[in-house]
Design a binder for these strands. Structure first.
Length: 822
RNA sequence: GGGGGCGUAGCCCAAUUGGCAGAGGCAAGGCGCUUAAACCGCCUCCAGUGAGGGUUCGAGUCCCUCCGCCCCUACCA
C-alpha cells in the first residue's frame, strides 16, 4: 500500500520522543486532578499478541484522553514475571528461568513501545526483582504475624505434570490442571494458607460498591457462596451422649430427614462404622480419598445427575424432629471441607439426596406441598408444610424460623453462615516464585526471617526437575541456615509463593515505588488509589480480582496500608477476547496473529484504529479473512485525513457562509459524539464519527465552492486532537507540521463542543397515519405538542389521506413525530 | 442442572434507550484518473431486525415461548 508518509519513520520518531522527554511520567505531588489507569499485570510470554494489543490500545487511549482532559494520569507498566511457563521452558532448554523471563520481558516491552503505548517507566515493577520480592516477603511476614498466614495439613490438589499443588481456582471443572491439562490428584500435605475466609463477608458486601460489569460481580458472589443455615446435632442412636453435627439451610424440612451422610474424610466415620460394614466403607473411603477430583466429582454430565456412590455405616442417628432412628451413610457427594462434613438428608426436598435415596432404596417423605401437577423427584420450592408436626401449614420462611428455634432448644442448634470460599493455598513446590521467608528450627519451631535479612532470594545453581519436591529443598546451601532466634542450625522453607500473590499488590507499588524502606508509603499511595479504571480480560474475573481485593483489605488491617481505601479497583472494564476460527486466540493454542507485521504496513496507528473500530470493546473479535481488509481500511482513513490536511485538491473561498457553518456544526457535533463515545466505552462509534466527519469535511473542502480558510484550519486542528488518543503518532506528526512552535497535540486540551453549534435548529418531523409514515416536514426543535398536532393535521398530504376518515386520536411527540389514529 | 450474553444488509457493526431501521467500514458493481494495473477520487446496490406470540398509537429496543451460537459455573447441603 502506498502511503503518503513513512509510517515506521514517523512512529519510531515519536515513540523515542515520548520516552526521552518523559511525556507520560507523573510525580506523586502533581497538583492536577488524578487519574489512575491500569491494564492488568501481564505475564511476559514474549512479544505481544492481539489480546495484549487490544488491552493496551484501550489503556493508552484512556491515558492520553485523560491527560488531554487536564489530569495527572498514572500509567505504569510491569511484569508478572514469576511462574510455571518460564520454569518449564527453562527445564526443557536446560537454562535458567531468569534468562528466559528477562528475554520475554524485553520482547513484550518492545511490542508495547512499538504500539505507541506510553508509561511512566520509572515505576516499572517485575515480580522477580529482588527489590519487589523483599516487600512481597515483608507482606507475607506481616500476614503471618497477624494470623492471616498459617500452615496446615490439607488435602490438596496435586498436579503430577506441574509437580506442584494447585489452588482450587486453578483446577478446571473436569478435574484437570488449568495450566498443563493433567488430571489433578488429591494428596494430604503441609501447606501454607492465607486466611481469606476471614474476609468473606466483607469481600461479599463490598461487591455492591464496585462499578464492575454485573457478570463479574455475580461470579464473585457465587464464588464466595454465602449461605445461611443451622448447625445442629443428630445424636447417635447407640450412644445418645454423642452426636453427629450437621449443617443445613433447610431446617424446616427436618421431619423429612430419612438418613444422614458423612463425608469419606469425616473424623467420626471410623467410630460410626460397624464391623459388618467396615469392608464396604473402607473400600469407598479409599477410592474417594485417593481418587482424583475428576473421578470423584465430574462424571457424565452435571451435579445432581451424578451417580451417587455410598455405603451404609451400620449406625443410626436420631432425627430430633421425629425421634426416629435413621441410618448413617458415607458418600462422596458430601464434602469433608464444607460445613461440618456431614449432612441430614432430605430426599423429598433435595435433588442430590433424592438421587442417592433412589439408588440406595431409602424412604422419601415430603415436608413441603409441591404445586399441583408437580412430577419431579425432589421439590425445593415454596409451599405449605406437611407431615411436619408443629410446622404443618407454615410457609418455608416461617417454618425455617420455627425449626431453627426448635433445634436451638432440642439439638444444640445454632444459626450459622457458611461460605463456599476456602482459605487461599499459597505455597508452591516450585523454584520460579518468591520464596516464603520462614525458617524451621528444632527448638523454636517456625521462625520468620528477620526483615533486615530480606529478601530471601533463591540461588541460581538449582536443579529443577519434576520429582515433586521443591527444587530449593535439595539445595544444601539454601536450605541450611541458622535459627534467627537461637542461632542453632535450622532449615529454610523451600516452598515459594503462588504468583497470584505478586499480582495482588503490584498496583500499590506502582503508586509509590520511590519511598525508600517501604513497599510503598501509604500516604503517597493514597494519592492514587483506588485505581480509577482497571482494564483486563474476563478470565481474571474470580481469581486475581478476589485475591487483590483481599490483599488490600488485609494490608490495611495489618498496618502496611493504613488509610487506603479497602477496595483496589473502582471501575473495571473487561475486554472481549480475540478468536480465530471460533476458538480463543492464545499462545497455548498456537493460533496467534503477531502484530509485528502490521507495524511495517499500516503502522501502530492503523492497528490501534482497527481494534477500536472493529466492534464494541467488550465484545469478542472474530479474526477472519476479512480482517486484513478492515485493517487496511483503517490505514486508508488515516491516509485520507493526511492528504486532506495537506490541503491536497482543496479549494478556498473568502468569506464565511452557510456551507462553512454547516461544517462547523458537523465538527462540533463530532466533538460531542467522540467525547461521549470515549466516556461510555463506545470506541467503535467514536471512530465511525471521525470517518463520517472526514467525509463531510473532505467533500466540502474539495467542492468547487470550497472551504473558508479558518474554518478548515479549525476543523483539521480539532480532528487532530480528537484522533490523538486513537492514533497518537500520525496526529503528533501532523500537529508538529502545522504548529511547530506549539506544544504537542498530546499536551493540548481536549476540545469542548460549542452547545450553540451542536444544537439542532430544526428537525424533520414525521407524520404517521396509523403508524405509517405519510409525510415529513421541517419544524423548529421547540415545537409544542399543540403546534405539532396542528401542523400535522393542516398538512396537505395528510388532509388528502384523511379524506373521509374520522380521526380517533392524535399522538404528538414533537419534534420527532405525530401519529394520527383513524 | 444453574447463571449470563448474543442473534439487524453478503460480512463487521450503528440506531438519541419505546418514535423515519442505517452512522461508519469491508466486500461487490459502475464511473473518473492511468498506456495499463495498483493506488486515489466519486457513485450505486443490499436487510425490515433468528421464529412465533403479547403489551403499546408505535417494538430492533419491554414481556413470554421456541431455535441457534458463545461464555461462566457446577454435588457447597
Amino acid at each position: 500500500m502506498a502511503r503518503p508518509f513513512e509510517v515506521t519513520t514517523v512512529e519510531s520518531k515519536w515513540q523515542a520522543r515520548w520516552l526521552d522527554e518523559g511525556t507520560y511520567e507523573v510525580d506523586n505531588d502533581d497538583p492536577r486532578e488524578r487519574f489512575y489507569a491500569l491494564c492488568m499485570y501481564p505475564y511476559p510470554s514474549g512479544t505481544a499478541h492481539q489480546g495484549h494489543i487490544r488491552n493496551y490500545t484501550f489503556g493508552d487511549l484512556l491515558v492520553r484522553y485523560q491527560t488531554m482532559l487536564g489530569k495527572a494520569v498514572l500509567s505504569p507498566f510491569g511484569f508478572d514475571s514469576f511462574g510455571l511457563p518460564a520454569e518449564n521452558a527453562a527445564i526443557k532448554a536446560g537454562s535458567h528461568p531468569r534468562l528466559f523471563t528477562d528475554a520475554r520481558m524485553k520482547e513484550l516491552k518492545s511490542s508495547v513501545r512499538r504500539l505507541g503505548a506510553v508509561y511512566d517507566w520509572r515505576r516499572e515493577v517485575y515480580s522477580h526483582d529482588p527489590n519487589y520480592m523483599k516487600w512481597a516477603q515483608t507482606i507475607f511476614l506481616a500476614f503471618w504475624r497477624a494470623g492471616l498466614a498459617y500452615r496446615a495439613e490439607a488435602p490438596v490438589n496435586w498436579c503430577p505434570g506441574c509437580a506442584t499443588v494447585l489452588a482450587n481456582e486453578q483446577v478446571n471443572a473436569d478435574g484437570t490442571c488449568d495450566r498443563s491439562g493433567d488430571l489433578v490428584e488429591r494428596r494430604n500435605l503441609e501447606q501454607w494458607f492465607f486466611k481469606i475466609t476471614d474476609y468473606a463477608e466483607e469481600l461479599l458486601n463490598d461487591i455492591d460498591t464496585l462499578e464492575w460489569p454485573e457478570r463479574v460481580k455475580t461470579m464473585q458472589r457465587n464464588w464466595i457462596g454465602r449461605s445461611e443455615g443451622v448447625e445442629f446435632d443428630l445424636p447417635f442412636a447407640h450412644q445418645p451422649d454423642k452426636a453427629l453435627r450437621v449443617f443445613t439451610t433447610r431446617p424446616d424440612t427436618g421431619f423429612g430427614v430419612t438418613y444422614a451422610v458423612v463425608a469419606p474424610e469425616h473424623p467420626l466415620l471410623a467410630e460410626l462404622t460397624t464391623n459388618d460394614e467396615r469392608r464396604q466403607v473402607n473400600q469407598l473411603v479409599e477410592r474417594a480419598v485417593s481418587a482424583s477430583e475428576l473421578e470423584r466429582t465430574a462424571s457424565s454430565d452435571a451435579g445432581a445427575g451424578l451417580e451417587k456412590r455410598g455405603a451404609f455405616t451400620g449406625s443410626f442417628v436420631i432425627n430430633p424432629f421425629t425421634k426416629a432412628q435413621v441410618p448413617v451413610y458415607v458418600a462422596d457427594y458430601v464434602l469433608g471441607t464444607y460445613g461440618t462434613g456431614a449432612i441430614m438428608a432430605v430426599p423429598a426436598e433435595d435433588e442430590r439426596d433424592f438421587a442417592f435415596a433412589s439408588v440406595h432404596g431409602l424412604p422419601v417423605v415430603r415436608t413441603t406441598e409441591p404445586p399441583e401437577g408437580f412430577e419431579g423427584g425432589a421439590y425445593s420450592g415454596e409451599g405449605a408444610h406437611i407431615n411436619s408436626g408443629f410446622l404443618d401449614g407454615l410457609d418455608v420462611a416461617t417454618a425455617k424460623l420455627k425449626a431453627a428455634e426448635y433445634l436451638a432448644e432440642h439439638a444444640n442448634g445454632v444459626t450459622k453462615v457458611n461460605y463456599r470460599l476456602r482459605d487461599w493455598l499459597v505455597s508452591r513446590q516450585r523454584f520460579w516464585g518468591c520464596p516464603i521467608p520462614m525458617v524451621y528450627c528444632d527448638d523454636d519451631g517456625l521462625v520468620p526471617v528477620p526483615e533486615d535479612q530480606l529478601p530471601v532470594v533463591a540461588p541460581d545453581d538449582v536443579t529443577m526437575d519434576k520429582s515433586g519436591q521443591s527444587p530449593l529443598a535439595t539445595h544444601e546451601g539454601f536450605r541450611n541456615t541458622t535459627c534467627p532466634v537461637c542461632g542453632k542450625p535450622a532449615r529454610r522453607e523451600a516452598d515459594t509463593m503462588d504468583t497470584f500473590t505478586d499480582s495482588s499488590w503490584y498496583f500499590l507499588r506502582y503508586a509509590d515505588p520511590f519511598t525508600p524502606g517501604k513497599a510503598f508509603d501509604p500516604v503517597e499511595a493514597a494519592k492514587w488509589m483506588p485505581v480509577d479504571q482497571y482494564i483486563g480480560g474476563i478470565e481474571h474475573a474470580i481469581l486475581h480480582l478476589l485475591y487483590a481485593r483481599f490483599y488490600l483489605k488485609a494490608l490495611v488491617d495489618v498496618g502496611i496500608a493504613p488509610g487506603l481505601p479497602r477496595e483496589p479497583f473502582k471501575r473495571l472494564f473487561t475486554q472481549g477476547m480475540i478468536r480465530l476460527a471460533g476458538s480463543k486466540m492464545s499462545k497455548s493454542k498456537g493460533n496467534l496473529i503477531a502484530p509485528e507485521k502490521y507495524y511495517e504496513t499500516v503502522g501502530a496507528d492503523g492497528l490501534r484504529l482497527f481494534h477500536l473500530f472493529v466492534g464494541p470493546p467488550a465484545d469478542d473479535v472474530d479474526w477472519t479473512a476479512q480482517t486484513e481488509e478492515v485493517i487496511e481500511g483503517c490505514a486508508r482513513f488515516i491516509d485520507r485525513f493526511y492528504r486532506l490536511a495537506e490541503y491536497d485538491e482543496v479549494n478556498f473561498h473568502e468569506s464565511f457562509d452557510d456551507s462553512d457553518l454547516a461544517v462547523r456544526q458537523a465538527l462540533h457535533r463530532t466533538i460531542a459524539r467522540v467525547t461521549e463515545g470515549f466516556e461510555r466505552w463506545s470506541y467503535n462509534t467514536a471512530v465511525a464519527a471521525m470517518m463520517e466527519l472526514l467525509n463531510t469535511v473532505s467533500k466540502w473542502a474539495r467542492s468547487e465552492h470550497g472551504a473558508e480558510r479558518t474554518t478548515l484550519d479549525e476543523a483539521i486542528d480539532t480532528m487532530l486532537k480528537l484522533l490523538a488518543p486513537m492514533a497518537p503518532h500520525i496526529t503528533a506528526e501532523m500537529w508538529e507540521q502545522r504548529h511547530a512552535a506549539e506544544p504537542s497535540v498530546h499536551l493540548q486540551s481536549w476540545p469542548v463542543a460549542d452547545p450553540e453549534l451542536v444544537k439542532e435548529e430544526t428537525i424533520t418531523m414525521v407524520i404517521q397515519i396509523n403508524g405509517k409514515v405519510r409525510a415529513r416536514l421541517e419544524v423548529p426543535v421547540a415545537t409544542s405538542e399543540a403546534d405539532a398536532e396542528r401542523l400535522a393535521l393542516e398538512n396537505e398530504i395528510i388532509q388528502t389521506a384523511l379524506e373521509g376518515a374520522t380521526v380517533k386520536r392524535v399522538v404528538a411527540r414533537p419534534p420527532r413525530l405525530v401519529n394520527i389514529i383513524v
